[in-house]
Amino acid sequence: MAGQRISADEALILFEEGDLLSLGQAANLIRNRMHPERIVTFVIDRNINYTNICKVGCRFCAFYRGENHPDGYVINREVLFAKIRETIDHGGTQLLMQGGLNPNLAFEDILNMVRDIKDNFDIHLHSFSPPEIVHFAEQANLTIRQTLLKLRAAGLDSLPGGGAEILVDRVRKYISPRKISWQQWMAVMEEAHKLGMKTTATMMFGSVETLADRVKHLVRVREQQDKTGGFTAFIPWSFQPKNTELGGTGTTGHDYLKTLAISRIVLDNVPNIQTSWVTQGAKMAQVSLWFGANDFGGTMLEENVVRAAGANFRVPIDEIIRCIKDAGYTPVQRRTDYSHVKRF
């Protein structure tokens, strides 16, 4: 509370014994200390899932299709460009492109897609999570650094923090056995940060991990941030069980707010904490503004991955603005780098 760093053991005690309102109070205090200007930011963006074909097949995922599945797709330029044009028409500044690890797409195809987008549009490319980067590197027989350099030269601006799930290999072996290890995930982020590219970090909780695993995840992000400082935001979101192999019930609203608050308390070196209206709905997302969140994330004009797993919350820009105002904050549209576009 006095601004001292919380240890891993202390963080575990907060998870095990902290009551919701006290955690909220502490997280809110830290949030307001780090962001005293009484605003809540959001970015107008679009999620484009350029392919759903994935060789990894994680057990918590309802979006992927196998290589020869009839529903498998790779987006064509015409559709892609129409989506981007529409995004820009809606005031969008960011494109969040992510896709499955599709063995039929060569790295050169990806680079061409990035170049084509940048040749035709002025939009920030916040795309390709670490598992995709590692996949590209393997396909092209390049190092992570070389892969990132080529992507950056083609026009990639920053990396989203997806694919982190829980940064503990015991958990990953169970929920995503063929996905990259936590060290590989972090290695991609480290290389990106060293090249001056910003990234975010996520955590998908509420599947099979223990509270100690969550703490380990937070501490690993914090340690990396001490080293390279390139994480702009942390985004915890809860596992959505519907249509997944893992199944189960998913976590509760209480657990979400608690985890969000502890994230704010532990990650003293990450500037922004994003709420996840896609997984929690607008009501909970708004309430989370008292539990450490200072950013509403993206408007996500299109989101397919979480929706495939049963989350069905559609929150248009007007609704985001209303929620932020009603909570007593000024809504501010931001860019990916958190510079401001417009106050509402």
Partner: peptide, 12 residues
Amino acid sequence: MIGPKLAQVSLS
């Protein structure tokens, strides 16, 4: 009326 997530949180 308010959804199970918020109803649970309302217990605080």
